[in-house]
Computed example of a mutant assay.
Amino acid sequence: MSYKLEKQEDLQENINRIASEEIDACLTSLKKAEIHEAVHDIRKRLKKLRALARLVRDEMGEKKYKKINIYFRDLGRELSPVRDLTAHMETVDMLKERYGDHVYVKFFDSIKQELEKERDTVAEELQEKDFFSQYLVEKLEKAKEKLEEWPVKSLDIAVILPSLERVYSRGANALEDAYANPNSETFHEWRKRAKYLWHQSELLQDVWPEMFKTLESEIHILADYLGDDHNLMVLDEKLLNTDFNFKDEKQKEMIHALIKEYSDHLRTNAELHGALIYAEKPKAFKKRIKKYVRVNWN
């Protein structure tokens, strides 16, 4: 099965199946994947689990939803020290691909090597504490055992509509705030909201595959713009606000300038893409999805 609601199952069966599959996939990554690949995969799946819970937030009730959301959020944060450093390395590669022909040959290599050393040290410390082999496994297994506590009793898919409207509305508001007050925090907030809408559009693909696959694809593009921008901002903060081992001051100034230029490019693309995705009023968006569900679900 995949990360989507299936029409042949009722809502409760769908939610339990998808959550179980995502947790199982996390455990499989820990067993079979290289540790940094596993961390990346698990972080993505924890976000999908949070988006799934958010989809049935109103059905669950606020208290239970927050408990589940915080559990997966905090577990993801425990992986951040390793994942963030891998993301920094990937972002350096992204900068090298775009600007490598315009700087001296090993300009980016020395930066990436320093990041890799730090990442390996952090990963080794966690491995010595049995973080991956024991602690993380136990936390995931506990989450799977408690799936029966996800209080999704309704068989009516319409219970997801308030969450869809709320996620869409908050994304539209975050878009406006990002360009009215452009900084790393406002764009990061918009990124989070766009990702929730992206994952929820994935879940709804069986309602109307052609339409929702297109919507999911377009939101994915927006999420990539915002995700790359976020990674640039986090890398910039790390390189400029810590005792990072640069070769000289010119290298530091240059990497900052390149990050700024690339960020501006991504934000320009994101603005147009976002305006198209959030072109509707939230109530109109909800009403449209409601009609699709009525026509082609049960």
Rank of each mutant, 00 (worst) to 15 (best):
Y3A: 12
K4M: 12
L5D: 02
E6S: 13
Q8P: 10
E13I: 07
N14G: 09
N14C: 12
I15Q: 01
N16D: 07
R17S: 13
A19Y: 00
E21T: 06
I23C: 05
D24P: 05
A25T: 05
K32C: 06
K32N: 13
A38H: 03
I42F: 06
R43S: 13
L49W: 01
A51T: 00
A53E: 03
R54W: 06
R54H: 11
V56P: 00
R57Q: 13
R57G: 05
R57L: 12
E59K: 03
M60K: 01
Y65M: 08
K67W: 07
L75R: 07
R77I: 05
S80E: 14
V82F: 04
V82C: 09
L85H: 02
A87G: 06
V92P: 00
E97A: 11
V105K: 11
F107K: 09
D109F: 09
S110M: 10
I111Y: 01
I111L: 15
K112T: 02
R119T: 02
D120P: 04
V122W: 03
A123G: 07
L126T: 00
L136T: 00
K139D: 05
E141D: 11
K146Y: 12
L155W: 06
D156E: 14
V159Y: 02
I160P: 01
L161S: 09
S163L: 06
S163A: 15
E165D: 10
S169A: 15
G171V: 02
G171S: 11
A174I: 02
L175C: 05
A178D: 03
A178E: 01
Y179V: 05
N181F: 14
E185T: 08
A194Y: 02
K195G: 02
K195D: 02
K195Y: 04
Y196S: 08
Q200L: 13
P209T: 07
E210P: 06
M211K: 15
F212V: 02
F212G: 01
L215E: 02
L215T: 03
E218D: 15
H220K: 15
G227Y: 03
D236K: 14
D236P: 06
E237T: 12
L239N: 00
D248L: 10
K250I: 04
M254W: 05
I255Y: 04
I259A: 04
Y262I: 00
H265Y: 14
R267Q: 12
E271R: 14
E271C: 10
L272A: 14
H273Q: 14
A275F: 08
P282L: 07
P282R: 08
A284T: 05
A284K: 14
K286T: 01
R288L: 14
K290M: 12
V293R: 12
V293D: 09
V295P: 02
N296E: 10
W297M: 13
N298E: 15
